[in-house]
């Protein structure tokens, strides 16, 4: 299979996020970036598919802070090749990025009859929905999102996929290649790679860098302002040492007749 995966860096939301003085962006000094979680699943699924059915995995990213480390990690996990598209992409949102990716894939004739393109199903930093569907549109290929299972049938050159609905309900679909999928969860959780292996990759592997200058219809929607959600002020915060807190919790639960 010719597997192509897109990976994006997003702010780690477990850290504190500060809004910059322009009121429209996050203060970069406070951000710790990491690979978008769904993308790690997309990488994992691609590597699993390669291991099962053969082929190559190409990782594609846009230049972004700290992206190199994520790329080397993906290479250490089993991606064969990495491409970084250079440029200042900061204000570009999904529709425009999809356009960049589609142009890159088309102009370099990277899509053949055995191509499966994988993205993460969703990133946490984007209000314009999911890139995967814009990409499907630009490439005029079948596109499915929220995918949690992929199986390739070599004879028919198609894939059997499962997609999530709600309440644990999933649907099974059969899709011809080439196709585009938004991966929600890989068949197995993303594998762990030791730091030493990532370091070795940094020394030996080569990231293909690509210049890309082109005009775009739109970079995406403009955000007027960012703000933190108002704390509903509803939560009664329990304070003290663990012992005191535990005591308070038991009291509350008793008062409420819950225990």
């Amino acid at each position: 299979m010719n597997l192509i995966v897109f990976l994006k860096m997003v702010p780690d939301t477990v850290e504190e996020l500060k809004i910059a003085s322009d009121g429209k962006t996050l203060d970069p000094d406070w951000l710790r970036m990491k690979a978008n979680e769904n993308d790690e699943h997309a990488v994992e699924e691609a590597v699993i598919l390669k291991e099962k059915y053969g082929g190559t995995v190409t990782l594609v990213t846009l230049d972004a802070p700290e992206v190199d480390e994520a790329i080397y990690t993906a290479l250490a996990k089993g991606c064969d090749k990495a491409v970084k598209i250079l440029g200042d992409w900061q204000n570009f949102t999904s529709p425009a990025i999809a356009e960049v990716f589609a142009k890159y894939l088309k102009e370099n004739n990277l899509i053949d009859s055995k191509t499966l393109i994988l993205t993460g199903s969703q990133a946490t930093d984007d209000i314009e929905g999911e890139l995967v569907y814009y990409l499907g549109e630009y490439l005029e290929l079948p596109v499915y999102g929220v995918v949690t299972y992929v199986q390739y049938n070599e004879n028919k050159n198609n894939i059997l996929i499962r997609k999530e609905f709600s309440g644990g309900l999933r649907g099974e679909f059969e899709v011809e290649l080439p196709a585009v999928l938004g991966i929600q969860a890989a068949e197995n959780p993303p594998r762990y790679v030791p730091i030493a292996k990532i370091r070795a990759m940094m020394k030996s592997a080569n990231i293909e860098e690509l210049e890309f200058t082109q005009d775009f219809a739109s970079k995406g929607i403009e955000i007027e302002k960012l703000y933190e959600p108002e704390v509903a002020g509803k939560a009664v915060m329990l304070e003290g040492n663990p012992e005191e807190i535990a005591t308070k919790i038991v009291e509350i639960l008793t008062d409420k007749g819950l225990i």
């Binding site: 702010p11 939301t13 996020l17 809004i19 996050l26 946490t124 930093d125 984007d126 209000i127 929607i221 403009e222 955000i223 007027e224 302002k225 960012l226 703000y227 933190e228 959600p229």
Partner: peptide
Amino acid sequence: LYGGKILSEV
């Protein structure tokens, strides 16, 4: 956005 930590107005 951002796992519910930030709201954005458009």
